[in-house]
């Protein structure tokens, strides 16, 4: 649930990085945290296991500057990817306004990507949301491993597996090196803010229309 605070003149949106375990969701947040100046970011909060796997979520608040005099504040969340944390993932999705699906390009992770996308759809369904209707961007991560002679899925295969029907924008990335990280963030932020603003304007118009009838 996005929050528009007219008192502080701020819009708060929640973007969730989703994807299978070890695909690089937290790496995306770390890179953003280190690259953005302190003025534009809040504290990075992580709840992880000893093995550095996300246990509950990571949270990074960032400030994107002003649009029409309103400060855009985005909260970036990640979910724990491992399949047995399904209940936790569902909790983090509560009130989501935009989604980045980080897919692992490793060929041996093909099934995990597909499973995670199905899990995302199912979790959203329980909140009455549809992935098709939410702002969504795909990030195909670990593309740099092609140079290390590790078998990777081609972009066509990833698109065909995950994005055939959704037709969302996608970015090739190597999150550890920061490649594609900001491109992904920029696109999902733009789409999310537009989505939240449109929903707000629609609600206002709807309320006015209702008022007219009554």
């Amino acid at each position: 649930m996005a929050l528009i605070d007219l008192n502080k003149r701020e819009i708060h949106c929640k973007i969730v990085y989703y994807g299978p375990g070890r695909c690089g969701k937290t790496t995306n947040l770390f890179y953003i945290y280190n690259a953005v100046s302190e003025k534009y970011r809040g504290k990075l909060l992580t709840i992880e296991t000893r093995g550095e796997r996300t246990l509950f979520f990571d949270l990074l608040p960032i400030n994107l500057g002003k649009i029409h005099g309103l400060d855009i504040r985005i909260q970036l969340y990640t979910v724990p990817g491992q399949s047995h944390y399904r209940a936790t993932r569902k909790l983090v999705l509560k009130g989501v306004d935009g989604i980045v699906f980080v897919a692992d390009s490793l060929r041996k992770r093909r099934e995990k990507n597909i499973e995670s996308l199905i899990d995302l759809k199912n979790n959203l369904k329980e909140y009455g949301l549809k992935l098709e209707e939410l702002p969504l961007v795909f990030q195909y991560n670990k593309r740099d491993l092609i140079n290390a002679n590790i078998p990777l899925l081609t972009i066509e295969e990833l698109e065909n597996d995950l994005n055939k029907d959704l037709k969302a924008p996608y970015f090739e990335a190597a999150a550890l090196k920061g490649i594609g990280v900001f491109e992904t963030l920029k696109e999902i932020s733009k789409r999310t803010v537009k989505y939240v603003a449109r929903k707000y304007i629609f609600n206002q118009a709807h309320k006015r229309a209702q008022g007219g009838v009554l």
Binding site: M1, L3, D5, H12, K14, G42, K43, L45, F57, L59, P61, Q75, Y77, K94, G95, V96
Partner: peptide
């Protein structure tokens, strides 16, 4: 706060308390 973790309104002494993280947690 709301259940998505947004701070709607705070009252009192916020000194030293990171309300954004507190709300999310």
């Amino acid at each position: 706060i709301d259940e998505a973790g947004n701070v709607i309104v705070a009252a009192g002494n916020e000194n030293g308390v990171d309300t954004t993280s507190l709300a999310a947690l």
